[in-house]
Design a protein around this nucleic acid. Structure first.
Lengths: 153, 153
DNA sequence: AGTGTATAGTTTATATATAAACTACTATGC
DNA sequence: GCATAGTAGTTTATATATAAACTATACACT
């Protein structure tokens, strides 16, 4: 459905450019909400799940520092402090000392690893399902468009 | 730049589908950050500006209820309470009574109207500039892709 | 060795977002 | 008329996000 109908607007968008921008923005909101709903049964938020996925897939054996996690999630490093606090409290990740004593290396706990091993395949399937309405060519087109937009900011 | 390079990932994405989803998500984050930076000199957040724009362009003479604003911003109505609180405190909007006494009709104050009249044209130009890297065909393609994705959630 | 600079993480204050429980009001059905 | 449903807004608790100020550590240079 067009965004105009979805938001029940009576007036058209001012330009295709603005319509495209708002479509990108609101679609991202919808996807985020959907992801939150998908992860809720696992007792995790979408953001918490994302952080744990990054450690699983890019942390190797040493884990990732909070600064690196912040960079990969494109969030302020202050945000990661609280995020790791909550995940540590839930026994999903643990802070471990690095050689450079400024760093916390964040790793998954056994509990965290177990939960991810269970939920990761389901997440993969959900992504395929969500994106299946677009052809491979459409997907590549979409990726290219996003890259161009980011480069231009 | 590809998202892989931008986030300095050492591994490829698992699928084009996942890459497209992450591109959409992260591009939206980048755009939001850019918007926040753009509106900062006006003393407004991107979210506050969005709310005021909705009132200006879709509020007519009566303004909009908080429920309607929540719907148009795709946020929980609890969120709009605080948003309007802060904008009211800054003398940008005002709550006025509607015939149906459950409703607050939110309108721009003179100060809010003045600020919007000044910033709105600059915002329009910024949107054009940001989206100018995509052709009209690309933009329509992007809109269509977003619509398909939302319909499929 | 000591000084300055940069980096990592935390703390604080604040904004934005949700869900759930609550109040106030409206509308519906008998 | 009155119980019941539904709708609008608020409050509370909590999560996520930022900027700015802070501490601790590391590094570079004379």
């Amino acid at each position: 459905m067009g965004l105009k109908e979805e938001l029940k607007l009576s007036k058209d968008f001012i330009s295709v450019e603005h319509e495209a921008l708002l479509n990108l923005y609101y679609t991202s909101i919808c996807i985020k909400k959907h992801a939150a709903g998908f992860f809720a049964p696992y007792g995790l938020s979408d953001v918490q799940f994302n952080l744990m996925m990054l450690i699983k897939h890019h942390g190797g054996s040493e884990g990732l520092s909070q600064a690196r996690l912040s960079e990969m999630m494109m969030v302020n490093r202050a945000n990661t402090t609280g995020l790791v606090d909550r995940l540590e409290k839930a026994d999903m990740v643990q802070r471990t000392a690095a050689e450079d004593r400024r760093y916390n290396m964040i790793r998954l706990t056994q509990k965290g690893q177990k939960l991810l091993d269970k939920s990761d395949p389901a997440y993969g399937k959900e992504v395929q399902k969500a994106m299946s309405v677009l052809s491979k060519a459409d997907l590549k087109h979409l990726i290219k468009a996003c890259e161009k937009l980011r480069d231009n900011l």
